[in-house]
Design a protein around this nucleic acid. Structure first.
Lengths: 128, 128
DNA sequence: GTTGACTTTTACGTAAACGTAAACTAAAAT
DNA sequence: ATTTTAGTTTACGTTTACGTAAAAGTCAAC
Protein backbone atom coordinates (compact mmCIF):
# COMPACT_ATOMS: atom_id res chain seq x y z
CA UNK A 1 0.00 0.00 0.00
CA UNK A 2 1.37 3.44 -0.80
CA UNK A 3 0.91 6.60 1.13
CA UNK A 4 0.29 10.29 0.54
CA UNK A 5 2.06 13.10 2.32
CA UNK A 6 0.05 15.95 3.74
CA UNK A 7 1.03 18.36 1.00
CA UNK A 8 0.09 15.86 -1.69
CA UNK A 9 -3.40 15.56 -0.27
CA UNK A 10 -3.59 19.30 0.17
CA UNK A 11 -2.79 19.83 -3.47
CA UNK A 12 -5.17 17.15 -4.66
CA UNK A 13 -8.11 18.68 -2.85
CA UNK A 14 -7.01 22.29 -3.02
CA UNK A 15 -7.02 22.88 0.71
CA UNK A 16 -4.22 23.96 3.06
CA UNK A 17 -2.15 21.59 5.12
CA UNK A 18 -3.41 23.49 8.11
CA UNK A 19 -6.94 22.49 7.20
CA UNK A 20 -6.02 18.83 7.04
CA UNK A 21 -4.20 19.01 10.35
CA UNK A 22 -7.19 20.76 11.82
CA UNK A 23 -9.48 17.90 10.79
CA UNK A 24 -7.13 15.54 12.56
CA UNK A 25 -7.10 17.83 15.59
CA UNK A 26 -10.87 17.46 15.68
CA UNK A 27 -10.66 13.69 15.37
CA UNK A 28 -11.93 13.34 11.81
CA UNK A 29 -8.82 11.71 10.34
CA UNK A 30 -6.09 9.64 11.95
CA UNK A 31 -3.09 9.18 9.68
CA UNK A 32 -0.26 6.95 10.78
CA UNK A 33 3.18 8.40 11.51
CA UNK A 34 6.68 7.63 10.35
CA UNK A 35 9.32 7.04 12.99
CA UNK A 36 10.26 10.69 12.79
CA UNK A 37 6.69 11.84 13.22
CA UNK A 38 5.60 12.63 9.69
CA UNK A 39 2.00 11.97 8.79
CA UNK A 40 1.23 9.33 6.17
CA UNK A 41 -2.21 9.10 4.62
CA UNK A 42 -3.72 5.90 3.20
CA UNK A 43 -6.38 5.65 0.49
CA UNK A 44 -8.88 5.34 3.28
CA UNK A 45 -7.71 8.58 4.85
CA UNK A 46 -8.00 10.18 1.45
CA UNK A 47 -11.54 8.92 1.10
CA UNK A 48 -12.38 10.28 4.53
CA UNK A 49 -11.02 13.68 3.59
CA UNK A 50 -13.09 13.65 0.44
CA UNK A 51 -16.16 12.87 2.51
CA UNK A 52 -15.43 15.69 4.91
CA UNK A 53 -15.03 18.22 2.13
CA UNK A 54 -18.24 17.09 0.52
CA UNK A 55 -20.06 17.37 3.80
CA UNK A 56 -18.71 20.90 4.14
CA UNK A 57 -20.03 21.84 0.72
CA UNK A 58 -23.46 20.74 1.90
CA UNK A 59 -23.26 23.06 4.85
CA UNK A 60 -22.71 20.42 7.53
CA UNK A 61 -20.54 21.42 10.47
CA UNK A 62 -17.40 19.44 11.24
CA UNK A 63 -19.16 18.21 14.34
CA UNK A 64 -22.01 16.75 12.32
CA UNK A 65 -19.62 15.22 9.83
CA UNK A 66 -17.64 13.72 12.67
CA UNK A 67 -20.76 12.11 14.04
CA UNK A 68 -21.65 10.60 10.69
CA UNK A 69 -18.17 9.29 10.00
CA UNK A 70 -17.68 7.67 13.37
CA UNK A 71 -21.05 5.99 13.20
CA UNK A 72 -20.63 4.59 9.72
CA UNK A 73 -16.94 3.91 10.02
CA UNK A 74 -16.66 1.95 13.21
CA UNK A 75 -17.42 -1.69 12.81
CA UNK A 76 -20.60 -1.85 14.77
CA UNK A 77 -20.74 -5.52 15.38
CA UNK A 78 -23.22 -5.75 18.20
CA UNK A 79 -26.88 -6.04 17.35
CA UNK A 80 -27.91 -3.07 19.46
CA UNK A 81 -25.18 -1.02 17.85
CA UNK A 82 -26.29 -2.07 14.39
CA UNK A 83 -29.86 -1.12 15.11
CA UNK A 84 -28.79 2.22 16.46
CA UNK A 85 -26.63 2.89 13.44
CA UNK A 86 -29.43 1.97 11.06
CA UNK A 87 -31.83 4.26 12.88
CA UNK A 88 -29.33 7.09 12.73
CA UNK A 89 -28.67 6.42 9.07
CA UNK A 90 -32.35 6.48 8.27
CA UNK A 91 -32.63 9.80 10.05
CA UNK A 92 -29.74 11.29 8.09
CA UNK A 93 -31.12 9.86 4.88
CA UNK A 94 -34.41 11.60 5.57
CA UNK A 95 -32.58 14.86 6.13
CA UNK A 96 -30.74 14.51 2.85
CA UNK A 97 -33.96 13.69 1.03
CA UNK A 98 -35.63 16.75 2.47
CA UNK A 99 -32.69 18.84 1.47
CA UNK A 100 -32.89 17.58 -2.08
CA UNK A 101 -36.58 18.38 -2.26
CA UNK A 102 -35.92 21.79 -0.81
CA UNK A 103 -33.23 22.45 -3.37
CA UNK A 104 -35.42 21.27 -6.21
CA UNK A 105 -38.07 23.73 -5.14
CA UNK A 106 -35.48 26.46 -5.10
CA UNK A 107 -34.44 25.43 -8.57
CA UNK A 108 -38.02 25.68 -9.77
CA UNK A 109 -38.33 29.16 -8.34
CA UNK A 110 -35.08 30.28 -9.87
CA UNK A 111 -36.14 28.94 -13.23
CA UNK A 112 -39.42 30.79 -13.11
CA UNK A 113 -37.70 34.02 -12.13
CA UNK A 114 -35.24 33.54 -14.96
CA UNK A 115 -38.06 32.91 -17.41
CA UNK A 116 -39.63 36.15 -16.28
CA UNK A 117 -36.40 38.07 -16.79
CA UNK A 118 -35.92 36.55 -20.22
CA UNK A 119 -39.41 37.61 -21.19
CA UNK A 120 -38.72 41.16 -20.07
CA UNK A 121 -35.53 41.21 -22.06
CA UNK A 122 -37.38 40.03 -25.16
CA UNK A 123 -39.90 42.84 -24.80
CA UNK A 124 -37.10 45.36 -24.46
CA UNK A 125 -35.50 44.03 -27.61
CA UNK A 126 -38.79 44.18 -29.44
CA UNK A 127 -39.05 47.91 -28.79
CA UNK A 128 -35.55 48.76 -29.80
CA UNK B 1 -51.27 45.61 5.05
CA UNK B 2 -50.38 44.34 8.50
CA UNK B 3 -46.98 44.08 10.05
CA UNK B 4 -45.00 41.69 12.16
CA UNK B 5 -42.88 42.68 15.12
CA UNK B 6 -39.37 41.33 15.42
CA UNK B 7 -40.26 38.84 18.12
CA UNK B 8 -43.16 37.52 16.10
CA UNK B 9 -40.87 36.76 13.21
CA UNK B 10 -38.28 35.32 15.56
CA UNK B 11 -40.83 32.93 16.96
CA UNK B 12 -42.21 31.96 13.56
CA UNK B 13 -38.81 30.97 12.24
CA UNK B 14 -37.28 29.86 15.50
CA UNK B 15 -34.37 32.28 15.42
CA UNK B 16 -33.30 34.97 17.89
CA UNK B 17 -34.15 38.64 17.49
CA UNK B 18 -30.43 39.25 17.49
CA UNK B 19 -30.13 37.12 14.39
CA UNK B 20 -32.81 39.12 12.59
CA UNK B 21 -31.19 42.41 13.57
CA UNK B 22 -27.87 41.05 12.43
CA UNK B 23 -29.27 40.31 8.99
CA UNK B 24 -30.45 43.90 8.85
CA UNK B 25 -27.01 45.06 10.00
CA UNK B 26 -25.59 43.23 7.03
CA UNK B 27 -28.08 44.80 4.66
CA UNK B 28 -30.22 41.74 3.97
CA UNK B 29 -33.50 43.08 5.31
CA UNK B 30 -34.78 46.65 5.67
CA UNK B 31 -37.89 46.85 7.81
CA UNK B 32 -39.64 50.18 8.22
CA UNK B 33 -39.77 51.88 11.60
CA UNK B 34 -42.51 53.30 13.76
CA UNK B 35 -42.17 56.88 14.93
CA UNK B 36 -40.56 55.63 18.09
CA UNK B 37 -38.07 53.49 16.24
CA UNK B 38 -39.59 50.03 16.44
CA UNK B 39 -39.06 47.75 13.50
CA UNK B 40 -42.06 46.63 11.49
CA UNK B 41 -41.81 43.76 9.05
CA UNK B 42 -44.02 43.35 5.99
CA UNK B 43 -44.91 40.10 4.25
CA UNK B 44 -42.10 40.87 1.86
CA UNK B 45 -39.62 41.19 4.71
CA UNK B 46 -40.90 37.89 6.02
CA UNK B 47 -40.38 36.27 2.66
CA UNK B 48 -36.86 37.67 2.52
CA UNK B 49 -36.08 36.25 5.94
CA UNK B 50 -37.40 32.89 4.83
CA UNK B 51 -35.12 33.03 1.81
CA UNK B 52 -32.13 33.90 3.96
CA UNK B 53 -32.74 31.01 6.32
CA UNK B 54 -33.18 28.62 3.45
CA UNK B 55 -29.97 29.83 1.89
CA UNK B 56 -28.23 29.26 5.21
CA UNK B 57 -29.47 25.69 5.37
CA UNK B 58 -27.91 25.13 1.99
CA UNK B 59 -24.58 26.32 3.29
CA UNK B 60 -24.49 29.67 1.54
CA UNK B 61 -22.80 32.51 3.38
CA UNK B 62 -24.73 35.66 4.20
CA UNK B 63 -22.59 37.44 1.66
CA UNK B 64 -23.63 35.09 -1.12
CA UNK B 65 -27.25 35.30 -0.07
CA UNK B 66 -27.01 39.08 -0.05
CA UNK B 67 -25.68 39.03 -3.58
CA UNK B 68 -28.50 36.83 -4.81
CA UNK B 69 -31.21 38.84 -3.11
CA UNK B 70 -30.03 42.19 -4.33
CA UNK B 71 -29.67 40.95 -7.87
CA UNK B 72 -33.09 39.37 -8.06
CA UNK B 73 -34.84 41.91 -5.92
CA UNK B 74 -33.86 45.19 -7.51
CA UNK B 75 -35.89 46.09 -10.52
CA UNK B 76 -33.23 45.74 -13.14
CA UNK B 77 -34.82 47.74 -15.86
CA UNK B 78 -31.90 48.42 -18.14
CA UNK B 79 -31.12 45.94 -20.84
CA UNK B 80 -27.50 45.50 -19.79
CA UNK B 81 -28.63 44.99 -16.22
CA UNK B 82 -31.18 42.43 -17.29
CA UNK B 83 -28.63 40.50 -19.27
CA UNK B 84 -26.21 40.55 -16.39
CA UNK B 85 -28.86 39.37 -13.98
CA UNK B 86 -29.87 36.55 -16.30
CA UNK B 87 -26.27 35.44 -16.68
CA UNK B 88 -25.79 35.49 -12.93
CA UNK B 89 -29.04 33.59 -12.46
CA UNK B 90 -28.01 30.94 -14.92
CA UNK B 91 -24.74 30.53 -13.07
CA UNK B 92 -26.47 30.13 -9.73
CA UNK B 93 -28.97 27.75 -11.27
CA UNK B 94 -26.13 25.62 -12.51
CA UNK B 95 -24.61 25.59 -9.02
CA UNK B 96 -27.90 24.49 -7.52
CA UNK B 97 -28.32 21.77 -10.11
CA UNK B 98 -24.85 20.46 -9.38
CA UNK B 99 -25.59 20.51 -5.71
CA UNK B 100 -28.72 18.49 -6.23
CA UNK B 101 -26.84 15.91 -8.25
CA UNK B 102 -24.15 15.78 -5.63
CA UNK B 103 -26.70 15.25 -2.90
CA UNK B 104 -28.49 12.56 -4.88
CA UNK B 105 -25.25 10.70 -5.19
CA UNK B 106 -24.73 10.99 -1.45
CA UNK B 107 -28.23 9.66 -0.96
CA UNK B 108 -27.44 6.65 -3.13
CA UNK B 109 -24.34 5.91 -1.14
CA UNK B 110 -26.15 6.22 2.15
CA UNK B 111 -28.85 3.89 0.92
CA UNK B 112 -26.34 1.28 -0.10
CA UNK B 113 -24.55 1.53 3.23
CA UNK B 114 -27.87 1.19 5.00
CA UNK B 115 -28.78 -1.83 2.91
CA UNK B 116 -25.50 -3.39 3.91
CA UNK B 117 -26.15 -2.75 7.59
CA UNK B 118 -29.64 -4.18 7.32
CA UNK B 119 -28.26 -7.31 5.76
CA UNK B 120 -25.76 -7.72 8.56
CA UNK B 121 -28.51 -7.29 11.10
CA UNK B 122 -30.57 -9.98 9.38
CA UNK B 123 -27.70 -12.40 9.53
CA UNK B 124 -27.22 -11.69 13.21
CA UNK B 125 -30.88 -12.35 13.83
CA UNK B 126 -30.70 -15.58 11.85
CA UNK B 127 -28.03 -16.91 14.20
CA UNK B 128 -29.74 -16.01 17.38
C1' DG C 1 27.28 17.69 3.64
C1' DT C 2 25.00 21.57 3.13
C1' DT C 3 21.22 24.06 0.96
C1' DG C 4 16.44 24.26 0.32
C1' DA C 5 11.92 22.35 0.48
C1' DC C 6 8.87 20.02 3.61
C1' DT C 7 7.06 18.83 8.09
C1' DT C 8 6.20 19.30 13.07
C1' DT C 9 4.28 21.62 17.25
C1' DT C 10 2.87 25.72 19.61
C1' DA C 11 0.47 29.65 19.68
C1' DC C 12 -1.54 33.81 18.54
C1' DG C 13 -4.75 36.09 14.95
C1' DT C 14 -9.11 36.47 12.32
C1' DA C 15 -13.63 36.55 9.81
C1' DA C 16 -18.34 35.11 10.11
C1' DA C 17 -22.38 34.68 12.64
C1' DC C 18 -24.27 35.33 16.11
C1' DG C 19 -24.81 35.34 22.01
C1' DT C 20 -25.13 38.09 25.91
C1' DA C 21 -25.27 41.89 28.99
C1' DA C 22 -26.07 46.75 30.07
C1' DA C 23 -28.59 50.88 29.96
C1' DC C 24 -32.49 52.92 28.29
C1' DT C 25 -37.20 53.70 26.05
C1' DA C 26 -41.77 52.44 24.62
C1' DA C 27 -45.90 49.48 24.78
C1' DA C 28 -49.05 46.52 27.03
C1' DA C 29 -51.21 44.84 30.94
C1' DT C 30 -53.05 45.08 35.48
C1' DA D 1 -50.33 54.83 37.29
C1' DT D 2 -47.12 51.64 37.59
C1' DT D 3 -45.37 47.19 36.84
C1' DT D 4 -44.23 43.90 33.29
C1' DT D 5 -42.99 42.96 28.75
C1' DA D 6 -40.91 44.06 24.49
C1' DG D 7 -37.95 46.87 21.86
C1' DT D 8 -33.52 49.81 20.86
C1' DT D 9 -28.51 50.70 20.63
C1' DT D 10 -23.83 49.81 21.99
C1' DA D 11 -20.40 46.89 22.85
C1' DC D 12 -17.85 43.17 24.35
C1' DG D 13 -17.77 37.85 24.27
C1' DT D 14 -17.82 33.28 21.88
C1' DT D 15 -17.56 29.45 18.63
C1' DT D 16 -16.17 27.53 14.30
C1' DA D 17 -12.85 26.91 10.95
C1' DC D 18 -9.24 27.87 9.73
C1' DG D 19 -4.72 31.61 8.55
C1' DT D 20 -0.23 32.86 9.78
C1' DA D 21 4.11 33.09 11.96
C1' DA D 22 7.89 31.21 14.72
C1' DA D 23 11.18 27.81 16.03
C1' DA D 24 13.00 23.48 15.22
C1' DG D 25 13.56 18.98 13.11
C1' DT D 26 13.86 16.12 8.58
C1' DC D 27 14.04 14.75 3.82
C1' DA D 28 15.69 15.23 -1.00
C1' DA D 29 18.86 17.07 -4.16
C1' DC D 30 23.03 18.67 -5.78
Amino acid sequence: MNYYTISQLAEQFDVSTRTIRYYEERGLISPIRTESGQRLYTKKDRAALKLILRGKRFGFSLEEIHEMISLFDNDRTGRKQLEKTIAYGEQKLKEVTERIEDLMQLKQEMESILADFRERLQKLEGIE
